[in-house]
Design a protein around this nucleic acid. Structure first.
Lengths: 326, 326
DNA sequence: TTGAAAGCGGTACCAA
DNA sequence: TTGGTACCGCTTTCAA
């Protein structure tokens, strides 16, 4: 592989002149350019990216920590990040964590090592305090409400959509509502907000036997339905943590020819449209895009950006091409 | 940010000794280790990844070219790549192309510039010949049958599943079958194989008005259904290029209260399970994993790996947790 | 067991 | 317009 030194030597010009030619910066005579470009072509030379990165101190890469991409939630957010990165001439590195703290720490260390120029944390297992500490080593953006913490955030304003949804249920005289969460309220911000909003509308938290945690796949939804069917009588609605998951729930009732309770999904995914259930659309694609924008921004202080979310009652296929991208 | 030089200076040892301590290579006395580690800790020092990459000539990153990740096809394959990369201590860089040739060329150039150690091409717009040329600059693996080309490949053996599916249809006396493709047969390998296999079983290609191309979203599926319903009478089955897309097709018939033709999907996605249609499962997750394995392998010659695919008639939710990951 | 020094392949300042 | 050269921060060989 030819280097800039080879080009310089063979063309008879100096390294500096070659560098200037490559980067089209500073003064280079037409003749020099011609000569140098000829040699570059002849040697099939291209500058080495790593060397350039080292010299400039930038990698033009942003790391995206996500538990996994099995869930459309993360696919959508990632898609938002990716498109925005692309538009800004950055590329994104996938950093799967499975919520493992050690793994997440590893990625934070990599930020410190300048493996990437910034970090987007879509979801995490480690406490926010830890993230906060690593902010000094490079820009970090979280995709959740970081509250009083000194951490950039882009997150969905779910309260409004949840409030709308719960009021809609209340108006329909619905009382017995079950909840599905992936992680329990202490750990997951989403779970806490859901329950808090519910309590605001209904005046009280749901009973323990109507809150199921540890559900994050359709199959787990299926089993959650089994549990609910056993322990909860008169169940009227199930508020799920994803349309796909609710599909699993529904399957259980269908398989056992049981009367189907009302279902509400989240994520505005295809599966929800297929079975025509109401859903919460938190606009993950937008969140991802904003997060990337923020991580690239010169960080004078901390910024928190709230993204609007919707409760979609009449959930039918959107005929605008490419809508499900987002 | 402290450098290895700072550590050397302050600890009183040489750079080499510090380096050896960090990498636990070569001989370092216990005392030296202790001293040096103390200084490392005190300075909050971590080695710079870019400098290390430059020195070793490796980035520990693999680029994954994909048109987009809206389609579960690419999510699954990406998931396979990602998990395998993780297991091998590599990370993956997302390289979205939208099938744009210029963009794909750009990524190939980046490979040449050593931006990553290897490249996985899940799908592409540029001709294989082009890819072949760039093989010299770093390992490239394609996720399709590369035929006689000198290009590593990991791909799905779809013929067998397609043959099974078409025989199943034939046995049911089904004659009028429509096809949905994202790109036309000349461009897309999948389309060609589908039609070829169909012809083998049925003895003839489907009539032109039963082949719809340019369909790659549920919304486009919806419109395709509209077209089919107009121009194709007696339609018995629709063979779609994705479960999600077929969901869009189904929606059209449901919306207009038309008799639903038989539907066959592809990808083994949740949406297909939700509406209980037969589907082709090409095991994309496995393909992604194998592709990564291959790109890391010391490349003595070219390898082609075929991954088995299934025709799933009784498509119900798989109750093994996490199955839809794959 | 340790250290000097030559890379790795660029960038960019400053002098000519 | 051009070139010399000091970085960027680490690895690795070889001699001491």
């Amino acid at each position: 592989m030819a280097t800039i030194r080879d080009v310089a030597r063979i063309s008879g010009y100096s390294i500096s002149t070659v560098s200037r030619t490559i980067n089209q910066s500073g003064y280079v005579s037409k003749t020099a350019q011609l000569q140098i470009n000829r040699v570059i072509h002849q040697l099939d030379y291209v500058p080495n990216a790593i060397a350039r990165d080292l010299s400039t101190g930038k990698t033009h890469k942003i790391g995206a920590i996500l538990p996994h991409i099995r869930d459309p939630y993360f696919s959508k957010i990632l898609n938002g990040i990716m498109d925005a990165a692309f538009a800004n001439n950055y590329s994104v590195i996938l950093l799967p964590s499975e919520y493992d703290e050690a793994q997440e720490m590893h990625y934070l260390e990599q930020l410190k090592r300048k493996e990437y120029d910034g970090l987007i944390v879509t979801s995490h297992g480690i406490p926010l305090e830890r993230l906060e500490k690593y902010n000094q080593y490079g820009p970090i953006v979280c995709c959740e409400d970081t509250g009083a913490k000194q951490l950039n955030a882009v997150f969905s304003d779910r309260e409004s959509a949840y409030t709308t949804a719960f009021n809609w249920l209340k108006q329909k005289q619905i009382k017995r509502i079950a909840f599905l969460f992936s992680r329990r309220a202490g750990v997951s911000a989403t779970s806490s907000i859901t329950l808090k909003t519910f309590a605001q509308v209904y005046g009280d938290l749901p009973p323990d036997n109507l809150v199921i945690t540890g559900v994050s796949t359709p199959a787990e939804g299926y089993f959650a339905a089994k549990t609910l069917n056993k322990q909860a009588t008169d169940l009227q609605y199930i508020f799920g943590n994803g349309d796909d998951i609710i599909s699993g729930v529904r399957q259980y009732y269908v398989d056992h020819q049981l009367p189907l309770p009302g279902l509400i999904g989240q994520g505005h995914q295809i599966s929800g449209v297929a079975i025509g259930i109401p859903t919460i659309d938190p606009h993950f694609y937008t969140i991802g895009g904003q997060a990337l924008q923020l991580v690239l921004e010169p960080t004078d202080g901390v910024r928190k950006i709230k993204v609007h979310s919707d409760f979609i009652i009449n959930n039918k296929i959107d005929l605008t091409p490419n809508t499900f991208i987002k």
